[in-house]
């Protein structure tokens, strides 16, 4: 049997292989993440069901039973559970999207340096950034889909447009993932992550209309919600699930536009900071 390692003439300059198209190199980065994910798939899927079950039970049913004594007059028969579900969907995906852009990315750049290993092959820095973004999008799609299934189980959706809330929630997550990933590539330690989660992600989680309409906030705090990408995501998901897009199509368009702009800009920055980081070593 012949071996590809068999004695041969010293390789000369030889033929230059064609440069593989970018999508296939991005695909290889995704394949690596998928290979890793196979090990933790069960535990991860289990957790994906656990979070919505816990939150919707505790807050939707528990807290909801109390809140529903004062129903919203503009939406006939709206329960708190139905109000909360889209908010929690978007907020949960946002949190996952933020986490995925922090520790696993720093790991690949700093701890086990597997992104440096990829960069020594035909794969480009931008491919590594985009591959990770696509991978995160897939992860978030799984989380959002599981969440949506649980919502249906709770009877907490008023519209089949729930199906469209899945990609909107994923987009919400990505609007956090990509800028944070661009930032992560400039870091050598996880020191700043704690502050970002404590003073960034958690306040947004609380003040972006996830649990109550932002109109209930004192006027001075309300702008937090308007500039919060999470509010745009929460409100867009809510409009879909309560079937109220028709009431204000412009607002819905703005929501989506803001999220797309953030995710896109973040991705472009991530490609640059990845390049700078991988080149620096």
């Amino acid at each position: 049997m012949s071996s590809f390692l068999d004695a041969r003439e010293p390789a000369g300059i030889g033929r230059v292989p064609p440069l593989a198209p970018s999508w296939s190199t991005i695909g290889r980065v995704i394949e690596h993440r998928a290979m890793l994910y196979r090990r933790t798939f069960r535990a991860s899927l289990f957790a994906s069901f656990g979070v919505p079950l816990l939150f919707l039970t505790a807050m939707g049913l528990g807290l909801g039973g109390y809140v529903d004594q004062n129903p919203d007059p503009t939406l006939e028969g709206l329960t708190y559970l139905q109000f909360l579900a889209p908010g929690l969907l978007a907020a949960t995906v946002m949190q996952a999207g933020s986490f995925e852009a922090a520790f696993p990315i720093l790991g690949g750049l700093q701890w086990n340096k597997i992104f440096h290993a990829m960069f020594a092959t035909p794969i480009r820095a931008a491919d590594i950034a985009y591959g990770n973004i696509v991978w995160i999008a897939l992860r978030l799609t799984l989380i959002a889909t599981v969440f949506a299934i649980v919502i249906v189980g709770f009877g907490a959706s008023r519209s089949p447009l729930l199906v469209l809330a899945i990609p909107v929630a994923v987009l919400t997550g990505l609007s956090f993932s990509t800028p944070l990933m661009a930032f992560t590539a400039t870091q050598r330690t996880p020191d700043k992550f704690a502050a970002i989660f404590r003073f960034g992600i958690t306040p947004l989680f609380l003040f972006s209309g996830t649990f109550y309409p932002i109109e209930n906030l004192p006027e001075i705090v309300r702008p937090i919600a308007w500039v919060s990408p999470l509010w745009h995501g929460v409100d867009a998901c809510r409009m879909l699930m309560l079937d109220t897009v028709g009431r204000d199509p412009l607002l819905f368009t703005i929501h989506i536009g803001v999220l797309v702009a953030l995710a896109g800009t973040g991705a472009a920055f991530a490609a640059r900071t990845f390049e700078a980081r991988l080149v620096r070593g």
Partner: peptide, 8 residues
Amino acid sequence: QDTLDNEL
């Protein structure tokens, strides 16, 4: 420095 994937 080694750049192996320790989790694989």
